[in-house]
Amino acid sequence: MLIIPCPHCGPRPENEFRYSGEAHVVRPADPETLDDAALAELLYMRSNPKGRHAERWRHIHGCGWFFNCIRDTVTDRIERTYPAGTAP
């Protein structure tokens, strides 16, 4: 079971968290301006890298905050976590 460092609560076991998909998928301020291809990209296309992956977690059984995390998908090592809305 991973230890995940919540940016607000510190290191906690994985089962306090819920995975929430790739991070930094930007919903535009005005989605109406997106064409169909850009919309499909936004809704359905994810990077799925082998290696460093920026992803979102929620400390759902803790403080409740969503935050971002850099995790290596090969080793499962977490490089760092940082609050939602901040740059990687």
Partner: peptide, 13 residues
């Protein structure tokens, strides 16, 4: 609730 929190925290903070 999770969906609402997600948008509140990350899209409409």
């Amino acid at each position: 609730l999770n969906h609402m929190e997600d948008y509140l925290q990350t899209e409409f903070p």
